[in-house]
Design a protein around this nucleic acid. Structure first.
Lengths: 207, 207
DNA sequence: GTCAACTTGCACAGCAGTGTGCAAAGGCGT
DNA sequence: ACGCCTTTGCACACTGCTGTGCAAGTTGAC
C-alpha cells in the first residue's frame, strides 16, 4: 500500500537520503519550495516523497533534527577543553563553516515565522551556549561591545549568514570564507584586528 | 462599482495610508501574510483593500517604492558632504535607524526569493553606494577587513538587521540601538573600538 | 437632506498546494 | 523466473488564497 514503513531495502534508503539532501538545497533556495519541486529535484515523483515522509512538516522536521544534531556536535567538539573565549569563538565559527548549509537552513527557517513550531526551541540551547560564551568574554575583557551578550549573539549569527550568502553569490572564495568570517566575527566582538588575524591563523593551522 | 479610481475623498486617503502602514507591520511579521490578514489588521474588509490596490503585488510594490525612496533619501542626506568614510558610515547607519522598519522590510523581502521581481534591482543602487564607500575606506586604510568590500556590505546589512531584531525581541533598548549598531558596524570594519565609540558620540551629539 | 464616493458582504471562478487511494509497472535478490 | 518491496501515474477531495462582480449600506461634503 502506501509502502515502505519499517522494512528497508538499500535502494529505498538511498532514495530517502537523496530526498533529504535535495530538500536541504531546495529549501535553502526557497523556504516555500513545494513537495513537487523537491520531488522533481530529487528525480522522483511527488507520491514517492510521501512514501518516505508522511507530510511536508515531517520532512522539514527531519531536516531540522539532523541539522541541530550536526551543529551541536560540531560546536561541542570545537570548543571542547578550550578556555579562552576568543579561541572558543574562533574554533566554533570555523567548525560551523564546515556544515555551513545545515546552519543556514536552520537560521533561515528559524527566522521565518512558524515554519515548524519548535525550531527556535530546538535551536535555543545552542544559542544559550553562545550567549554564555560571549558573556564570559565580555566579563574577562577579551571582548568589548556596546551590545549585551544576547544581542551580540544575534549579530554573530547574522554575520555568519552574510558571509555564507557572499560565498553563494560568488563574492568570496569558499576556502577563505571560514577564516574571513571568523576574523570578522571576532573583530565585531571588539577583538583587535591584528590579534584576531593571528589567533585565526594559529587555530586554523595547528590542528 | 469597484470604487475609488481617481477621485479622492480624505477618508479614502486615510484608509489607504492605514492599509499601507499596517501592511508594512504585518509583512514584517510574516512575509507571506495574506490580503485577508492585512485587511483585518487594518480594520477593513479584504474587498476594500482591492479597492485601493489592484493586487497583492501592487500593494507590496507600493510599499517597496516608498521604502526605497525613504532609504535613499535618508542615506543621501546623511552622507551629504561627508568625506571621511568612517563618519559617512556612521551617519548612514544612524540615519537608517530612524526608518528601521522600512529598511527591514526591504532587506527581508529582498532576501526571500522572487517576492516582487525587481526588489533587488531597486535596492541595487543603494547597495552599490555602500560598497563604493566601503572600498574607499579600505583603500584609505580607515577600514580593514579580510573580506572584499561587497562581502563586507552584506555583513553590514545583516548586522543592522540583527540589531533591529534584538530590539524587536526586547534584548536592547530602541534608543540605544542606533548608536550600538553603528559602533558595532564600524568595529566589524576594522575601526578600533575606542575610535568608533568616540566618532559615534561626536556624530550623534553635534547634529 | 441629498448625492457621490467609499465601504461592506456575499458569491463566485480559478489556481496551487497538500495528502490519500489504488492499480499498474519496475527493480533486485535469490 | 519468482516474489517482494518500491516507485510511478493517475485520480480524488480538501483547503486556503487571489481577484472580480454586484447590490446594499454608510459616510462625509455641500
Amino acid at each position: 500500500m502506501t509502502a515502505m514503513t519499517t522494512g528497508n531495502t538499500s535502494r529505498a534508503d538511498a532514495n530517502r537520503r537523496r530526498i533529504l539532501d535535495v530538500a536541504l538545497a531546495e529549501l535553502l533556495r526557497d523556504p516555500d519550495a513545494s513537495m513537487d519541486q523537491i520531488a522533481r529535484a530529487a528525480g522522483v515523483v511527488r507520491r514517492t516523497v510521501y512514501g518516505h515522509f508522511p507530510s511536508r512538516e515531517a520532512l522539514i522536521s527531519t531536516l531540522v533534527d539532523e541539522a541541530v544534531a550536526a551543529l551541536a556536535d560540531a560546536d561541542a567538539r570545537a570548543r571542547d577543553g578550550v578556555t579562552d573565549p576568543a579561541e572558543a569563538v574562533a574554533r566554533s565559527v570555523l567548525a560551523i563553516g564546515e556544515i555551513a548549509d545545515r546552519y543556514r537552513l536552520l537560521i533561515a527557517l528559524a527566522q521565518r515565522t512558524v515554519t515548524v513550531q519548535g525550531i527556535r526551541e530546538r535551536l535555543a540551547p545552542l544559542r544559550a551556549g553562545k550567549v554564555e560564551l560571549l558573556q564570559h568574554g565580555l566579563d574577562q575583557g577579551v571582548f568589548s561591545s556596546p551590545l549585551p551578550a544576547p544581542a551580540l549573539a544575534y549579530v554573530h549569527e547574522q554575520m555568519i549568514m552574510a558571509v555564507m550568502e557572499a560565498v553563494n553569490d560568488g563574492l568570496l572564495a569558499a576556502q577563505e570564507a571560514g577564516r574571513s568570517a571568523t576574523v570578522t566575527v571576532l573583530t565585531a566582538a571588539g577583538v583587535p584586528a591584528s590579534t584576531a588575524t593571528e589567533l585565526v591563523a594559529r587555530v586554523s593551522e595547528g590542528k
